[in-house]
Design a protein around this nucleic acid. Structure first.
Length: 148
DNA sequence: ATTCTGACA
DNA sequence: TGTCAGCA
């Protein structure tokens, strides 16, 4: 049920060919924490249109903007998830994403606070907002204006 | 045929 | 990042 059947899901090989990158490269983005993949019951990664768009965005950031994976990870880590999720003050004081902001919140899943502990990060508004090349800029602008 | 995880002469 | 191994 996690994988909707109403939409078209592509397998990793199909996406790799479509973007002219290696299958291994896609898996690496996931290992590095800049991408979260949906998986079927058997463990197969499947990608929808939004996922492919995010992968395109990642390639652009790398090839055009000159960022590396570490740079993209830090960009994502700056998104103020604590301002987007209903965390309580004390929950924040125990959340690495709020305390350090070194890595995207979904990378420290085991130590997150509040509902972030149980929620599927792929479905979370923070991740959903992050995997959009246009939106990511806006999110960073917002973080500049907030006193954190 | 294709993907998965883990490892690295 | 690539690739080879050993499965499913």
């Amino acid at each position: 049920m996690a994988v909707a059947e109403t939409k078209k899901w592509l397998k990793i090989g199909e996406v790799a060919r479509q973007l002219n990158i290696a299958v291994e490269t896609i898996r690496m983005y996931e290992r590095e924490g800049i991408f979260l993949a949906e998986k079927t019951a058997s463990g197969q990664r499947v990608y929808n249109e939004a996922d492919v768009q995010w992968l395109r965005c990642i390639r652009q950031l790398i090839k055009v903007k000159g960022l590396n994976i570490e740079g993209i990870r830090r960009l994502l880590a700056l998104i103020p998830c604590w301002a987007m999720k209903p965390c309580t003050p004390d929950e924040r004081e125990n959340c690495p994403a709020y305390l350090t902001g070194e890595r995207p919140c979904w990378m420290d899943k085991a130590q997150l606070a509040g509902n972030c502990t149980t929620e599927n990060c792929r479905a979370c508004t923070v991740y959903q907002a992050a995997i959009n090349c246009t939106n990511i800029k806006l999110l960073l602008h917002q973080s500049q204006g907030r006193q954190v």
